[in-house]
Simulated assay, not measured.
Amino acid sequence: MTSFVPGEIAVVTAAGSGIGRALARALASRGLKLVIADIDSNGLEATLGELKSFGTEVLAVPTDVTDAESVERLARTTLEHFGTFDLICNNVGAANDQRPSWEISPDAWQRLLSLNLWSVINGIRAFVPHMVEKNHGHVLNTASMSGLSIVPGIADYVVTKHAVVALTETLRAELDASAPGVSATVLCPGIVRTPMSAAIESERVENAAGSSARKGSIPAVPAIDPHDVAEAAIAAMEANFLYAVPAIDPLMRIRPTVDRLLEEVSKQPRPILAHP
């Protein structure tokens, strides 16, 4: 178990609001120096203003995480300013309107693939090589409870978040083998009290009142505070956990998928191997 220490350098994307801002605040409270990034310049400035009270050095860098060159520029700027970094939080999240998977348009698919998946890929490609070179650091990729379970009506969101979980699991195995001083954690929170979750809840209520195929697709569950998500993420990283799952009752959503997989695999015939 290790702890983040004052003076270490953390980079947090989508820091202009929600989980990203909460992560930045939690890390700043521990004395870490920060590079905060977001495409929303107003949100970025608001976060920068909040962090001044912690008395740590903070650099704000406007960044489009869906653009590989923009993320590479973020990494270069961090290295030019601080000389190194110890933590990259590839944090971003977006959702589309709720609808059956066969009704999701190509543009809607592409939007979430870019925002939820390619942003993480871009962050890994831009930041991990430096960590591997010095054999030190940690990667936090934000997924969702929907990356560990399924929710009908938001297939595009579920697919991208499952992909982030799988990407982080694979990255962790690769780092364990080639750079054991570097680690990775995937953050899979339940519903969080953010503008995105507020929009989802509003649509859930609207759909539940209607008779469309989307009725009741998003379950009604209490939202948790971004601060609690940030603290859980940091605790998981300090314990070197692969998964951080801050949620009201995570096993309630995860167990049915795992139980069904194990049950159905156990009932299937095994291939007969030919003898030489």
Rank of each mutant, 00 (worst) to 15 (best):
T2Y: 13
P6F: 05
P6A: 13
T13L: 03
G18R: 10
G18H: 11
G20R: 07
A22Q: 02
L23R: 03
A28K: 08
S29P: 00
R30I: 04
G31V: 05
K33V: 04
A37Q: 04
D40I: 05
G43A: 04
A46V: 00
G49R: 05
G49N: 01
E50G: 00
L51N: 03
T56S: 04
V58P: 01
L59S: 03
L59V: 06
T66E: 02
D67M: 01
S70P: 07
V71M: 08
V71F: 13
A75H: 06
R76L: 06
T77A: 12
E80M: 09
F82V: 08
C89T: 13
N90Y: 01
D97V: 10
D97W: 06
P100V: 07
I104E: 05
P106F: 03
P106S: 10
D107W: 02
D107A: 12
R111I: 00
L112C: 11
L112M: 12
L115H: 00
N116G: 05
N116Y: 06
L117V: 12
H130R: 15
M131I: 14
M131K: 14
E133T: 07
K134F: 06
H138M: 15
L140M: 06
A143S: 14
S144D: 04
I150S: 08
I154K: 06
V159F: 02
V165W: 09
L171Q: 07
L171K: 04
L175C: 05
D176N: 12
S178Q: 04
A179I: 04
G181E: 13
V186R: 14
P189W: 09
T194N: 12
T194L: 15
E201R: 13
E203T: 11
S211Q: 00
R214N: 03
G216M: 09
G216P: 01
I218Q: 07
V221K: 09
V221M: 10
V229C: 02
V229K: 08
A236T: 02
A236W: 03
M237H: 05
E238H: 01
A239T: 01
A239I: 01
F241N: 11
F241T: 01
F241D: 09
A244S: 14
P246I: 15
V258S: 15
V258E: 10
V258H: 09
R260A: 10
V265S: 08
Q268L: 03
R270H: 02
I272N: 12
I272V: 15
A274D: 05
H275M: 09
H275R: 09
P276V: 05
P276S: 12
